[in-house]
Design a protein around this nucleic acid. Structure first.
Length: 111
DNA sequence: CTCCTGACTCCAC
DNA sequence: TGTGGAGCCAGGA
């Protein structure tokens, strides 16, 4: 293992930590980017988590849609494809209404 | 409730 | 090597 290898393996480990946390979010519950980052042992790196989720494959089994911003809103511009996909999922689980209203306070995780 | 600001990190040019 | 934008956050008006 050379010094340059460390640079590529360390972030990979941090990614797994983040995936692990998101995988732990129960159905019908919600979590913020900042909280996910903190629980993964990466405080202050909420934006990095957001960037990470943006790179997830379309067929990922990870419940990425249960992650929203700290204001209880979907971070995509309203009307975009991603916004729709995420909202539909949340509606399916009963944590949001088709109108776009999200039950952030009620579904927040962990309590 | 909404809009604005300052602070912080990561990545693509 | 420097700079600016991004799926953020907290606080205040």
């Amino acid at each position: 293992m050379t010094a340059t290898d460390i640079d590529s393996t360390a972030p990979a480990r941090e990614r797994q930590q983040v995936y692990q946390v998101i995988h732990r979010i129960p159905a019908g519950r919600l979590c913020s980017y900042g909280t996910v980052a903190a629980m993964a042992g990466l405080p202050g790196r909420a934006r990095w988590v957001g960037r990470l989720l943006g790179q997830l494959p379309d067929d990922s089994l990870l419940p990425w849609f249960r992650v929203i911003n700290s204001q209880g809103k979907i971070s995509f511009p309203e009307g975009t494809e991603n916004y729709r996909r995420q909202l539909d999922k949340l509606v399916e689980e009963g944590s949001a209404e088709p109108s776009g209203r999200i039950f952030w306070r009620r579904c927040r995780w962990p309590d």
